Simulated assay, not measured.
Amino acid sequence: MSMVNALTGNEAAAKGAALCKPDVIAAYPITPQSSVVEHLAQMHADGLLKAEMVEVESEHSAMSVVQGAALAGGRTFTATSAQGLALMYEPYFRMSTMRLPMVMAIAGREMTSPETIWAGQQDSVSVRESGWIQFYVEDNQEILDTIIQSYKIAEDNSVLIPVNVCYDGFYLSHLIERVEVPTEELVEQFLPPYCPKHIYFDPERPIAVDPMFDGSMMMKFRHNHLEAMQAALDVIDNVDKEFGSTFGRSYGGLIEEYRMDDAEVVLFSIGSSTGAGKDAVDLYRERGEKVGLIKVRVLRPFPTKRILKALSKSVRAIGVVDRSVSFGWNTGALFQEVMAALGNYGRSLPGISFIGGLGGADITLDHMTAALDAVIALAEKPEYGKSTIWLD
C-alpha cells in the first residue's frame, strides 16, 4: 500500500529517509538542500520521526556527528550540496574508508566560481573517488525509492559502504511531482532493522578508532574496499529487483535501458535530463531512426559490464550528455568513464561528449535532438577524437 502525494524532491528525500527509521540525523542547511533539513525537523517536531536530531554549526560537524553514531552501530542520515560537501570532505572520506554504511542525499549544485547556487553535478562528480557508492536519479519518485534501496545496499555485509543519492538541484529539489509514498509497514518488510556485526565501538570498552598503520595495512584496506565496491554491483541489481517485487517499481539496477533492442545510435544520460533524452529518442523512433538511450544510475562503482552488455554489436556510435566537466580531458566526466569502460574491454566506438546544464542552464528537448543529429552523423562517417559539443 502507498499514499500518492505531490512532493518536491527535497520532501521526497526527507520522507524516504524518515521511512528508513534512522537513529541519528545531523545536517546543516545549504541551498538547494535546505528544505530537506526543514522537513525532517518538522517531522521530528510533530512526533512523526523518532530519530535523534542534532543541530550543528557546519557540514564538517554534521558528517562528524553521524560518523560517531555509525561507529556506535546506528543508522544515520544527512544531506548537503556543493560547498557544504566540500567543507565536510575530511570526515566524508573517512566515512567510506572506515566502511561505515549510511545514506546521504546530495542536491546537486554547480561549484563556484563564478558564484552560483544553481543546478549542476560538479559537486558530487568531483568526489567520485572518495569511496562512496553514488546514485544519480531522474525524478522525485526515484529519489524516495533510491534512498530506501540505498540503506539495504549500504548495510549488506558484502558491501558496508556509504551511499550518496544525488539529484539535480532545483530541477528536482524544488519542483513538485507525483510521488507514491509507501507505508512504514511495507518499508519495514523490505528493510529490516540495522544490526551491524562489524561495529564494536562501546563507551564501556574504549578502543582506538582509526589508528595510524603502516603501508601494508593501507594496502589491505584499499584492496578490501575495492572488492566490496565490485560486490556492490550485483547487490545493487538484486536489491532493485527485490524492491520491484515489493513496491511495484524498479529502475533497472545499475543502468536503465530505453529502446535499446536494435539501437544503432545511443545517447547516455545521467540525472534529470534523462526525460528530455527519452522524448528525443521517441521522436526519432517515429521517424524510423534506430536510436536508444542508456541512463547511468550508478557512477560508483562504475557499471562497465552492464553497459557493454547493453551496447549490442549493432551500435555504431554513441553520445554522452554530461552536466559536469572533466577539467583534465576537455570533456564531460561521464563521457570519460564510458570511453574508459569500452577501451578496457577492447570495444571501440566513435563518441561525442556533450556538455550542458551547468549553473542551472536547462537541457531541453532541442538540445537532445541536436545531440542525436550529431551522433547519427558520426555513425554515418565515423571520426575518433571528435571535439566536445557544448549544449548552450
Rank of each mutant, 00 (worst) to 15 (best):
I255Q: 02
F247Q: 01
K278F: 05
I294F: 07
R285S: 08
R316H: 06
E256A: 06
A232C: 08
T304R: 14
R297D: 07
S314F: 08
D282H: 14
V291G: 05
L283Y: 15
R297K: 15
D237P: 07
E264V: 09
R287S: 13
A276G: 05
R259A: 07
S272K: 10
E242Y: 04
R287G: 05
M229Q: 13
K241H: 07
R300Y: 11
G292C: 08
R306G: 09
T246G: 00
A280C: 10
V266F: 12
E289I: 10
G275K: 13
E289H: 15
E242Q: 14
L283I: 15
S312V: 07
A317H: 05
L283N: 14
A232E: 04
R259D: 11
A228P: 08
A232P: 09
V296P: 02
M260I: 15
F302V: 10
V235K: 01
F268W: 12
S250K: 12
A276M: 12
E289D: 15
A280R: 09
E256C: 03
A280T: 10
D240S: 04
R249P: 05
D282F: 11
P301N: 10
K313F: 08
I270W: 06
L308V: 15
Y284F: 15
V315Y: 03
I294P: 01
A317P: 05
G244W: 03
V291A: 13
T246W: 02
R285Y: 13
F247A: 01
D240E: 03
F268S: 03
V239W: 00
V296W: 06
N238W: 05
Y258M: 03
L233P: 02
G252P: 00
G253D: 01
K278Y: 07
D282E: 14
S314D: 10
V281I: 15
I294C: 01
G292N: 10
S250C: 05
R285L: 11
Y258D: 01
A317D: 03
T246H: 02
S269L: 06
V315W: 08
L293D: 01
V291S: 04
G292S: 13
T304C: 13
G275N: 12
R287H: 12
P303L: 04
G288L: 13
E289S: 15
M229D: 05
G271Q: 13
F302A: 07
V239K: 00
D261C: 10
E286Y: 12
T274C: 09
P303V: 10
G271F: 11
R287V: 07
E264W: 13
A228L: 09
K295N: 13
F247I: 04
L254G: 00
A228K: 15
Y251N: 00
I307Y: 08
K313Q: 09
I236M: 06
I294S: 02
R287D: 13
R316Q: 12
R249M: 09
R259F: 06
R300M: 14
T274L: 04
D261P: 04
S312L: 12
E242H: 05
G275E: 04
G248S: 04
A276C: 12
S272I: 08
I255G: 01
R249N: 07
